[in-house]
């Protein structure tokens, strides 16, 4: 399923199939058994829960994933990440805390609130991502 560029959602978004967001969402996103892709045009201001989260756009809020969070090179995240596997590509911007002890360890408010704008990420190679196995 795809939420297009012109769509603005305020409130809670949940579902049981893979979802790609290109628009704006404010509130909460829950796809606990599915893949959520936050596209390059998306602007998310929400707490995000999914099985796997791929970030190519802008997210302000905590992200919790049961399996993996993947911030791609154009992705921007201001918030905390909780997942067993986290990968942050060179060029991505991130500010917050990373918890790889397992998913769901952050409380809803996040206990290490990011305090300023995110900063670019460096990776030794110019490859797309560094995957924590």
């Amino acid at each position: 399923m795809n939420i297009g560029k012109s769509v603005v959602i305020k409130g809670e978004l949940s579902g049981s199939e893979d979802l790609t967001i290109e628009g704006q969402v404010e509130g909460k996103i829950e796809l606990r058994q599915n893949l959520l892709t936050i596209g390059p045009n998306a602007k998310i201001k929400a707490q995000v829960f999914a099985k796997t989260v791929v970030v190519e756009g802008h997210v302000q809020g905590n992200i919790t994933a049961g399996e993996r969070i993947d911030i791609r090179d154009k992705g921007v995240v201001e918030g905390n990440l909780a997942a067993p596997r986290v990968s942050i590509a060179d060029g991505a911007q991130f500010r917050g805390a990373v918890d790889m002890q397992g998913a769901g360890k952050f409380n809803e408010a996040g206990d290490a609130k990011p305090s300023a704008a995110p900063t670019p990420v460096t990776h030794p190679s110019s490859g797309p991502t560094a995957v924590a196995r």
Partner: peptide
């Protein structure tokens, strides 16, 4: 923020 370091410490130490 270095992606490789985040992965390294997260994987080795299971840390926050």
């Amino acid at each position: 923020v270095v992606g490789a370091n985040v992965s390294f410490f997260g994987e080795r130490l299971s840390c926050k």
